[in-house]
Each structure stands twice: as C-alpha cells, then as structure tokens.
Design a protein around this nucleic acid. Sequence first.
DNA 1: CTGAAAGCGCTAACAC
DNA 2: GTGTTAGCGCTTTCAG
Lengths: 365, 365
Amino acid sequence: MGKGSAAQDNVIDYINVEQAVGAKHHQLDGDAAGEGKVSISQVAAHAGVSVATVSRVLNASQAVRESTRARVTASIHALGYRVNQLARSLRTDESRLLLVMVPDIGNPFYAQIVQGIDEAVQARSYALLLCETNGDPFRERRYLDLLHTRRADGAICLDPDTVQQARQAEALHFPWVACCEFDRGAGIPYAGIDNRAAAREAAAYLLDKGHCRIAFVNSDTRYMYARERLQGYMDALAAAGIEVEDEYLVRAEGLDFAAGRSAVAGLLALTDPPTAIFAVSDTLALGVMRGLHDSGLSVPGDMAVMGFDDIDLARQTCPSLTTVAQPMRDLGRHAAALLLRRLDTQKSGAEGIILPHSLVLRESA
Amino acid sequence: MGKGSAAQDNVIDYINVEQAVGAKHHQLDGDAAGEGKVSISQVAAHAGVSVATVSRVLNASQAVRESTRARVTASIHALGYRVNQLARSLRTDESRLLLVMVPDIGNPFYAQIVQGIDEAVQARSYALLLCETNGDPFRERRYLDLLHTRRADGAICLDPDTVQQARQAEALHFPWVACCEFDRGAGIPYAGIDNRAAAREAAAYLLDKGHCRIAFVNSDTRYMYARERLQGYMDALAAAGIEVEDEYLVRAEGLDFAAGRSAVAGLLALTDPPTAIFAVSDTLALGVMRGLHDSGLSVPGDMAVMGFDDIDLARQTCPSLTTVAQPMRDLGRHAAALLLRRLDTQKSGAEGIILPHSLVLRESA
DNA sequence: CTGAAAGCGCTAACAC
DNA sequence: GTGTTAGCGCTTTCAG
C-alpha cells in the first residue's frame, strides 16, 4: 500500500520541526504576531527568491538549483515557517482528512478497527475525523456533511447498513467505503467478513459437540451482520436436520453486556431450555455468561456459550470465551487502503474485500 | 456552556441539507462537474445579487432585506450549494477542528472521555481530530503539528504529563488543555480529579476493613496519576501508622489486563503476602483478579482487590470490582468547555478544574 | 532553473 | 441594504 504515494506527500511538513521551533529564539525580524504567523512570502523575501520557488522546495517538485534550495530551507528554519494547510487545501482542493463514522467508540470492537484505519493512514499523513453516530441517521447525515463542505476527502463508515442505505445516492458520488457492514450490491467498496459462513461454522461446532438445542441471541437487525449471522445459524441447523425453534431466537435490546445478561432469563424459563447459547457478539456473550452465573449455572458445564468478534475481553473472562475471531485491525487497514486507492485513482473500483475469520476454541464451549 | 455562542456558528451549514441534496434532480443549469462544485459566486449570479450578499445570508450577519434573503436562499437550494469550509477557514483563520490526543483509544477509560468531549463540542459544530499517541512523544509532536499547520484550532491532551512537559513552551502559546493528566503549575488549563486524595480514601477504606498488608500495583510513573496515587496510598498508610513495605509496591509493565495478571505471582510468593491489593486502574485490577483466580485464591475471601476508574467492566466482572469512580464523561466535557472558552475569549485563563471522585463499594473489597 | 501573476472560495472593510 | 474590492496563503501555468 502506498509505495509510489510518497510523492504526493509533503516533504517539509514533518521534518525538522525541532529546528523550526527552536528557531523562534533567534527570530529577529519580529512581525507583529511573531507566533506561527510566518507566510510563504516572508520566507521568499528572507531567502531572496519568489514565492513560487519556495513552494517548489516545499513540495519537492520540479527542479530547483541546490544552492537555492539550501537558501530557502535555511530561511524556512530561521523563520520557523510552517505551511498553512488551510491555504494549501483550498488551492489543491483536498483536506487530507478522512471521516470515520462509528456507531460507538466505547465499544472495543470498533475501537480496534479505528486503530487499524489509523495505522494504514499514518504513512500517508492523512488524519482522522472521528464521528460517533450511535447508528443515528441524522447524526450520520450531519457528519457526512463534512464531506460536502470539503472538510474531509473521504469517509469510512461502520454504521448499520440501513443507515448506509439512506445515503446510497450520495455514496455513489463520494469517496466512501464501508467496513464490517456492507451491501455487496450497493456498488460501494467494502471490507468485511463472511458473516453467514462464520456463524454457520460456529453453530456447526456447537452441533458437533452434541448440542441440539442451541439458542441464538441476536442484536439489532438493522445491522446486516445480525441478519447474516442468523442465516448462518439457520443454515447449520438445517444442515443437521434440526428444526429452528422460535423460542430459541432471542433478540436482545442493544448489543452490550446488560442486554446479554437480561436475555438469559427468558431462555432459562423455557420448558425445554437450550444447552448452548450462541450470541452474535462477545459483549453480548459476556452478558449471557453473567446472566447464567446469576442463575447459578456453570459454563460450559450446564450451558455452553459461544460469542462473536474475539475482542480482548474474550480471552480474559473466566471461563474464557469460545468465539469467532474477526480480524479487526486488518478490517480497518483494508478499508482505509480501499479508500486511499479510490482517492488516488479517482475511479471507484467498487469491489469489496472479504477477510478470513476463524473459530477460537476456549473454555466456554 | 456556549449559550451566546450560537452566533458564531454557521446558519446554513446544517439546515435544509435535505432540500439541498434533493435539489440535484432538477439541476438544470448543469455546470461541468455538477457535483458539489457550486461556489458562492454562482449562487450570487443565480440570485442576481453580489457575493457579499450571499455571504451575508450565509452568516446571518448584518441586515439583508427579507425578499433578498429569500431569493438567495432559494438559489442556494436550487443549486445545491454547500459552503466550502476550506475557503472559509482560510479567510477566518479557524478550522473548527479540535485535536484530541489520547494514548490508546482501545482503552475504555479514554474512550469515554472522548465521548464526553464529543458531546460538549457537538453543539458548537466543532469536529474532532482523533490522534492516538501511545504516549509516544514523537507521535504527539507530529500530531501537534496539525495545530501549527492550522488544521486544528486547539487541542485536548490526555497524554502522560512527561510528554506534555516536553511541549510546555508551545503549550503556553497554543490553545491547549490537559485532561486527567495535568500539572497544576504548568499554567495550562486542565480538567482532572484529585488523584492523591482519591487514592488515600481508597487505601483508608481498605485499612478500615482491617487490612494492614496492602499491596499497591502501579503502572508507568510517567503518568502523573500513577505518582499521585502512590502518594495517596502512602498518606493513608502513614496516617494509620503503618510502614510502607517496598515488597508491596509493584510496578506493572503497562496498565492492561495482562500486566495486572502477571503482577500477582510476585506478591503471592512473598513470605508475608498482602491481604489486599490496590491497583491504580480497573484494567490492572481485573488482571489482578484473574491472576488471583489462576492461583486458586478467592476474592474477596482470600484477598481483597480495589481498582480505580470505574469503567463499565468493573460492574460486570464476577466478583464485581470495588473501585474509585472518575467522572469520565464530565472530565471530557469540562476539558472541552475550557478549550472552547479559551478559543472564544483568546485569554488563557489558565485555571484548572478538579472534579469529584467517589468510592464505589462492590464485591471485591 | 526562476519569477510574475492568476486564482481557489470566501469574508470584511469600505463605498454608495 | 447592497455592491466592489482586497486579500487569506498557497499552487501552478506560462514566460523568460
């Protein structure tokens, strides 16, 4: 990613900041402000060249005689000049900022994806505009407006696909990629996993272990992943010739710990309770485990529990959680790479990428 | 916060986006691009007024005859005009972007603070530039550069104060506030809690419960909070007339679960092991609990455990964690308010604000 | 290799 | 009330 891209990046931006700042001390030609108010024309004057030339050395573009370059560089340091990105952006019409729309930054799953994005974007010196949407279409629209108003060059969206759907029309015209939540047919690039297959494998594993009464704790079906994973669960049951019991399908309100915890009671009250519970997310599964514990049941002795995501916590609980691992960081990295590529080439190349998942067997199932 | 500030905000920016976008359909006067390429002068032409007038209605400034305003507004919608923030920023010299420098966004403690900041900043239509530093001075400097290059109007820093110290000189001149980590004497505004008092109270509670051999699991002392909390711990012991045992002072590598977990072994190997463990963060405490569990010890039966922060997880573990609660969201909100105020008034008013903490008694101690 | 000059889209005096 | 105009600081032809 981004081998040939260095050329696009600015050369002076981040080098020699040390000197630039230190130079303030011997800043003799005191302009009114004296603080970071140095413009390119002052550098030009100081170096005895034109602004065009300063711009050239700034951008390492075209040929500049070595001696001239040295003189300009010296002036830049002497004056403590810092490029004004606002002006540059206006001129070049690119902000080098990327929008990241995430439902909830407090959710470690999303946090890790953001870290992946950040990682991929660092080298290209893009910065991230963090937008927490809570899956709210209104807030998303509002944020997306940052794109319209030229404050960001592109966006990565982790929001539910129902929300994304609403933005369809715009999505086609704007540099926008989806991450985790996506619609293959929507014509916008995405990075995600095969949720259906992953859920199928997880359920199959439970089936293999001899469980035939498996409950499925789902979350908000506005999320594509929730629907797909349900499908996978049903696929597995069907393949095993087992009827899907409506009673075993519970839809938690939310996808956090509390939701999982309170989902347990109903399942336990059934005349024919399940022997295993498959939750669509680790946070949910953790809540389920707690709910089980509250009821005096042991995991996996009395009830097997399977999660989804493999957040750090899954390894830390007691018993540790058997779950489906998603490559969060990679998901973020790939989404970012797709966006960057689109930004570079202008052409949308609307393919998506499906990353591998894996079953992580631990203690809970 | 920000009652009278609405005037500063842009009026057209976020209203009627609906119509603006919908208007694309009947966009007859097709300019080459046709997409978001409408400038203020085109609106002016379409409405038969000057750009100054358009600018006036855009900014709700000065008086504009009602009929004119209506005509301009109509043209804005008809053309699907969106203000170019880049241009506006260059002109007004404010980006309406704020830097948030956080050591680790994957840490739920920081994530919640960021949410608080976001909340406070929304109403003023500032957006957040997320900068994950890992407490690395180099990365921080690099990010801080966004400030120098005019991409952000101010910064909120959650980094260790040793890192902040290095930026001292610049901090005085730039709109910058500290959150959680701060130095009272540094002359930069901050939002935080009284770590020393909080730790003292926590240790005192343990003492009250009859523990006199209390271990203290600390993290990186580059963090002010780590040093302050150690002080508080020592204060409490001193007040109780108990000698501080060096053996009981363990410094974990890092402040995550793994660090806490591995810190336990040494404590248990002591000839005279402690009866209680006080960790400087919940994540650490959770790891400690796990380490204890690994060794077959029960909490609080065999060993009491006390944490710090009160992240969501503290309520969710089993046994639940007794800890010192920090008002994360409020911390973020106040830090943001301080920054915004500084941005509004220009004057630094370098006071800080100390928010209340509280002891949350649960099962682990 | 270097300079002059034309804007990017917007705001803010300053006129009328 | 409204229009004219001068830039904000930068990049980028186009000449030389």
